[in-house]
Nucleic acid binder design. Sequence first.
DNA 1: TGTACATCAGTGAACGCGCGTTCACTGATGTAC
DNA 2: TGTACATCAGTGAACGCGCGTTCACTGATGTAC
Lengths: 230, 230
Amino acid sequence: MTGTTKTPRERYRQQVREEVKEKAWQQIAGSGASALSLNAIAKQMGMSGPALYRYFANRDELITELIRDAYRSLADAFIAAGGPGEGAGRAGLPELARVLRRWALEDPHRYFLIYGTPVPGYHAPQDITAISQELMAVLLEACATAVPPAAPGPIPTPGTEPDPFDGHLADHREWAASHPDAPPSALRLALTFWSRLHGVLSLELAGHFTGMGLDPALLFEAEVDRIVTP
Amino acid sequence: MTGTTKTPRERYRQQVREEVKEKAWQQIAGSGASALSLNAIAKQMGMSGPALYRYFANRDELITELIRDAYRSLADAFIAAGGPGEGAGRAGLPELARVLRRWALEDPHRYFLIYGTPVPGYHAPQDITAISQELMAVLLEACATAVPPAAPGPIPTPGTEPDPFDGHLADHREWAASHPDAPPSALRLALTFWSRLHGVLSLELAGHFTGMGLDPALLFEAEVDRIVTP
DNA sequence: TGTACATCAGTGAACGCGCGTTCACTGATGTAC
DNA sequence: TGTACATCAGTGAACGCGCGTTCACTGATGTAC
């Protein structure tokens, strides 16, 4: 009676749930998340519409599950590359950046489901927020090792004028709860990594660069360079 | 018989078209672009559904018109601030940045209609591309004056190693047709401005920062600072 | 091993809804003589 | 200024569609003795 033991029925349930989600992703890839239809998925699986209600309470629960899986998948990719782990050890920021881009290109609509235009009225349940914090923890770890540790005491490093934004960061670091001792410069590096890569990635995925004749891969690499060596 | 003379009927037509678009924006602001419904708009105007077909061929034409208007509105804001003009003269990059943010905050869904998750299968007609080039021209003008003019000849400025990405930019500058003589560094500055500000803005508009307890305005200003003084 | 019962997957019919779009038609507004 | 005609705005009915979701029911699968 271990926790992982599954009755055949439970296994089957899980299988069908997976298949539903799989078809859902295919549908999203084709026509975006707003066009996701339970009936269409059922038809594609050779079942009748109402059958899906054995597996998902309603459409919203399915979408929430997809969002959760997307976050989970990205977090796992980050952890595999830069998490506290065996194997190749912790990855640096450039490698994390490439992991992010590879993950995004793998399924652009999945990326947009998380970071794109917000669905009106939708609020992510708390366990999803927790996953995104796992993700942030890996990023913060890489940032903390990429940045010189904070000088103890209020004496600023000579030659660098204190940035006003660092003060704001020092006061609002709840989002970085995984690294309570990271210096503001590390927090800032994480935000820079996130917002800049999101900027160049989402423009790429939306096709804005290819419409201009530019190579998105080069643009991305150039931006990564300027994040790690400012 | 001047071109601007309008018969009363033409004037009326235009008025109704404007009102339809107005209600359409309200609807988009409430539930996103994918929920836009001709019937709902008609009802809101006190008309019956089919009446709208006197003013728009179909739903797609209305959406295209909204996208065009959004681009036009942003381009006008840019031109008013930094275009070739009278008045206060040409604005610098920080001011353009604030114009962009103000415009985006005015109606986040309008911003996302242009720069958000792409609508599957939709391709912008050519006149819209033209408007976005107007917009880029203003940005490029500000970048060209913010950057030292190109050194004539292939001799690189000593002390700065040539960036591989600048070569790519020198080869692909069709998108910057308005400024055929701008140095690659200016082109690059424009791309940086665009992608970085889009990154921080779209995360703000999607609510990712407030969920973290950060002040988006400060984040934006910090990023603007690092664009103009690298 | 066999029987009796409970659990659960899936079906088909149905409800109510709103959508985009067409069509034939009425009534008002403008135009030409 | 008045009449005859053309133009155009808006209506109401209708078509076909797909959606999410409920409900009562059948049949298969598992469980307990």
